[in-house]
């Protein structure tokens, strides 16, 4: 039985300054009810904190490391004993990868291409652990995925073309 404590990153949240949730990823089991509660609680705490304060909030025996980029708050919930500064670096790493992929990323990118943001996060973190420290590798993997999608789309459209022609 995996207790919640043993997982490194409990969850990742992206919250806009208005408190809208842009991305969530849960690495340990939280019921739907708990999730909404967690989000409500944390956005209440984090959004009200001043700009000069430190980026760590202690919450329910965990620590939430957050960082604000433009209008978005990137939050990660970690164990008490983890290295908070490293998590900040991971957040920054994630943002840089997003930035490189979207080309100066903004909130709208994440709203319209939220699935891409999830793919990128999945290449960076899996099961609450960091799996890749190279931006290039992540970018290459995502590009490979994209081209897969492209070919699949092409195939699909060519097949539908054939079907369309055949049924004419």
């Amino acid at each position: 039985m995996v207790t919640l404590k043993e997982i490194k990153i409990q969850f990742v949240l992206l919250i806009s300054r208005q408190g809208k949730v842009r991305l969530t990823k849960w690495y340990s089991p939280y019921s739907q009810k708990e999730r909404t509660k967690v989000i409500r609680e944390l956005s209440g705490v984090i959004l009200t904190r001043g700009p000069k304060l430190c980026n760590f909030v202690e919450w329910r025996g965990y620590k939430v490391v957050y960082k604000r980029y433009a209008s978005l708050y990137f939050c990660m919930c970690i164990d008490q004993d983890d290295n908070e500064l490293e998590i900040l670096e991971i957040i920054h790493h994630f943002v840089e990868i997003l930035d490189r992929y979207f080309g100066s990323v903004c909130e709208l990118d994440l709203i319209f291409n939220f699935h891409k943001a999830y793919y990128i996060l999945d290449e960076l973190l899996i099961a609450g652990e960091l799996q890749e420290s190279s931006k290039k590798t992540v970018a290459r993997l995502i590009a490979a995925q994209d081209s897969l999608v492209e070919t699949a789309k092409e195939q699909a459209s060519s097949i539908s073309n054939i079907i369309a022609q055949a049924t004419k």
């Binding site: 430190c54 980026n55 760590f56 500064l85 900040l88």
Partner: peptide
Amino acid sequence: RDNNIRYV
């Protein structure tokens, strides 16, 4: 001066 550093 950095609060994060002081915190850790």
